[in-house]
Design a protein around this nucleic acid. Sequence first.
DNA 1: TTGTAGGCGTTATCAA
DNA 2: TTGATAACGCCTACAA
Lengths: 353, 353
Amino acid sequence: MAVTLRQIAEAAGVSVATASRILSDHPYPQATDETRERVLEAARDLGYHPSAAARALVGGRTNVIAVACERPDDPHPVKMLRAVHRIARDFGYHVLLSPGSEIADMAALLHERRVDVVLWARNTLDGAASLLEAVSAPHQTIIAVGSPGKLPAGVLTAYWEQSEGIASVVDHIVGLGHRSIAFLAGTEVGTGSKARLFVEHASRHGLTPHVVSAQEDEGCLLAGAQMARKALELDPPPTAIVGRNDEIAIGALHALHEVGVRVPEDISVAGYNDIAVAAYCAPSLTTLATPYVECAEYALGAALRSLARRNGQPPPPRAVKFPTRLQARQSTAPAHGEPYRRPRKWLVAQASP
Amino acid sequence: MAVTLRQIAEAAGVSVATASRILSDHPYPQATDETRERVLEAARDLGYHPSAAARALVGGRTNVIAVACERPDDPHPVKMLRAVHRIARDFGYHVLLSPGSEIADMAALLHERRVDVVLWARNTLDGAASLLEAVSAPHQTIIAVGSPGKLPAGVLTAYWEQSEGIASVVDHIVGLGHRSIAFLAGTEVGTGSKARLFVEHASRHGLTPHVVSAQEDEGCLLAGAQMARKALELDPPPTAIVGRNDEIAIGALHALHEVGVRVPEDISVAGYNDIAVAAYCAPSLTTLATPYVECAEYALGAALRSLARRNGQPPPPRAVKFPTRLQARQSTAPAHGEPYRRPRKWLVAQASP
DNA sequence: TTGTAGGCGTTATCAA
DNA sequence: TTGATAACGCCTACAA
């Protein structure tokens, strides 16, 4: 039912070979202008579309890139995916999103779908290295984007240092005079976690922030609200609250608003990542801008440029660091002399919502 | 470099045909248990992975579904994409996201990539019908999900009625006693637009709401903030503001907060779609929940079930309507007797942010 | 410049 | 139950 090369070859009165040469954009379009014209016309008239499957079978390339990220529906990854799409289009690639994106899922994509590029953007950035075992064609490329616990070996990596970002946040909060600080960690724990880094850096200022955790099964927003309420129970209560990500911080803003705590007058709140809504919270959210988009652009651009060359090889593996940037907004302000004590009105507000 | 069927056939001492029969899950696994075992073992040892390209070439099926939505990075589509992924995984499909998703882009996907299913979730729902011209294999399926201006003919469609949703919002706002209402439309205009529907339904209550528009190049959040400021200039000023979508409403909340207008005491605000953050705004946002996810689940489920049958045909085209639901939260409240007049403090607040 | 022919990895048909 | 073998649609030496 679909139009094939043979059909347009017959229609144009040439062999399939000539038709192929003309229709697949070769470096040197070796053909008479006249035959060339005939073939193109036939292709246009019959509505010819080359079969990606056939091309992939003979050529090896699929012109597909797969993206592996933790939760492709969270605002932060979504920001990056947008950039991925733009670049993919520029190079004539399509983007495959696997429902799962564990190493095994990506390995299957490399093996069976023969995707040309895997963009690995999961938290465990060094997982990208184990994917190298799954490449079965010389052109297949793995690139990593994110913030590494440990840099993946042998993989082009564009990254930022979580410790730098966390340090910026701590310095900002401490610089505003806050001494009693709560970090809302959610489920993320362990070495190299943001909570750990936060505590480490705060200790350089002689401070010991509280780390609050919570289940995230119902989403970061709810968890953030829950943790904020927990934080208010601390003694002494914090004058500043920092969320592991913006959604947690937004959940916290919501909970504080409900209880009648003013931000930033009573408590300062900061987030992490700088997702789109952060600038439009009430009040707008101070947050750390991570270079997710820039990293994806760099890594994917490099990979696709390398592949674009005939017999293109993967780009040489190297690691390029991008800077983070603190985005100060309205939700943080100088601390008062005293750590904030729960006033009566909270109880009133809580009692009659 | 990749392991092929021939290799494992040789290793197992059988022909490629038998190997194929055993390794591709046939209805009747016609083979001796003994040879069966040998083949499976060889496949396991050598690490065999069938080539999707080769299978697609001979079988026609690609096990890929493509999704066309307006802006795959907006929260609302993203909610739906999550459901799509879950279902795709259950049926062993992959999801292809085209950078562009115009009709032409999807047609190309049908022609060249030979995707099995196109899920059409763009605003112009009847565009799905024109895609039918691009199907070149009998199993290829188009399904439509969203809110139709006009129902696409010949396509399985799961939809909700925008007019019902808008009516719910109007009834809610008017029921609270609001008479002076502004609808923030952004760039969406024309017949069948939400603004038009809003005005129509409000007129049944004897009301004439203001329609505010704005560019959305910088995103709905900013546009929402701008339009809210415009709305405050109206005479009489509105006591209720309704956004065309939740992001516009959230932008409006932000602008009102900045200017010192209290929500819902001074002005009520409502959104549309019920994205995740809506429940976590400050105050939480009253909004209309659209059944995007349910629609996608229904349509995609039906399509993939039909295709799962051997020689599976597309599902019979029909249109199934899903209900919308008003989600009342804190951002809307009863109107006061008088339309709200701009008090002095606004000017003060504006002068000293 | 053009045509011939072989092969990419798999499935399906037919005969053994 | 198994094994040859012919497609599937395209690309690319190689030969003309």
